[in-house]
Nucleic acid binder design. Structure first.
Length: 255
DNA sequence: ATGGCGGCTCGCAGCCGA
């Protein structure tokens, strides 16, 4: 099974790219973030024509998540039940015997801001949510835009980013809390090129200069991680006309 | 080469993202 996560930064703008990417890579399950589309306007027909079912939880302008899959999705759960939130950031579903949680973690704007406080509350709630999901579904994959660069090697310039939002210690501690529940960072199960990132600012030639961050992740529970055969970031998807500022992350499970 | 921000809206300027 091939699973993926991609912050598309507007599903409508990115739809031609997404359809082409699905055709080229044939993932079995894909978590999408920042769809920025209300459910009534979700392009389910176009995605069905590409061979994928979709479950989705969206809103206008901001946020929005979806899970696309070749096989039907069951036990769909929207939001974190214990954390009421107007933002559409969390969607979970079971596909092919594996539980998928799709996260669009808050950005946090700046350390100390109201949005940062919201992010920390959200991260703490997510720890409880994941603990509960893991109890219900031992075969659990958590994918998404985590908006956390877990370590200095996930940051193009660690000194520039030291203590900044996306790299601050409380955010990194939350990421470690999630790992401590029993998840592995699929990307780090394998040797990877140095300076591997999943997001590059649109400005200041960040992508050609590879000034990026690794903030999009796939976590695999201990029941799934041993079957992971590969994990990579598809940098090619960041090239060309009208790219998302994020690249997809893809993991392959065997057996 | 991979290219100088892009996507959104009670839009035409200002917001948000990371």
């Amino acid at each position: 099974m091939k699973l993926a996560t991609w912050n598309v930064n507007s599903l409508y703008i990115r739809l031609p790219r997404l359809i082409a990417w699905l055709a080229a890579h044939q993932p079995d399950v894909v978590g999408l973030q920042e769809t920025k589309v209300e459910d009534a306007r979700f392009p389910a027909l176009e995605i069905a024509a590409a061979g994928y079912q979709a479950v989705f939880l969206g809103q206008r302008t901001y946020n929005g998540v979806a899970i696309l899959s070749k096989l039907p999705a069951a036990d769909v759960l929207a939001d974190m039940p214990e954390f009421p939130d107007d933002h559409k950031r969390v969607l979970a579903a079971t596909v092919g015997g594996i539980r998928f949680v799709c996260f669009y973690v808050p950005n946090g704007q700046a350390v100390g801001s109201e949005k940062y406080q919201y992010k920390l509350r959200w991260l703490a709630a997510a720890t409880d949510y994941l603990r509960h999901e893991l109890q219900r579904f031992p075969r659990l994959a958590v994918v998404g835009d985590f908006n956390i660069a877990p370590e200095d090697r996930d940051v193009h310039d660690p000194e520039l980013w030291r203590g900044q939002v996306l790299a601050s210690e409380p955010e990194r501690a939350a990421f470690r809390d999630w790992q401590a529940l029993g998840f592995d960072d699929a990307f780090r199960l394998f040797e990877q090129p140095e300076k591997s990132f999943s997001w590059w600012d649109y400005r200041q030639l960040a992508f050609p200069k590879n000034r990026g961050l690794r903030i999009d992740h796939i976590l695999l529970s201990s029941a799934l991680a041993p079957s992971c055969r590969a994990c990579r970031i598809d940098r090619d998807a960041r090239k060309g006309d009208k790219p998302s500022d994020h690249a997809p992350v893809v993991a392959e499970l065997g057996g």
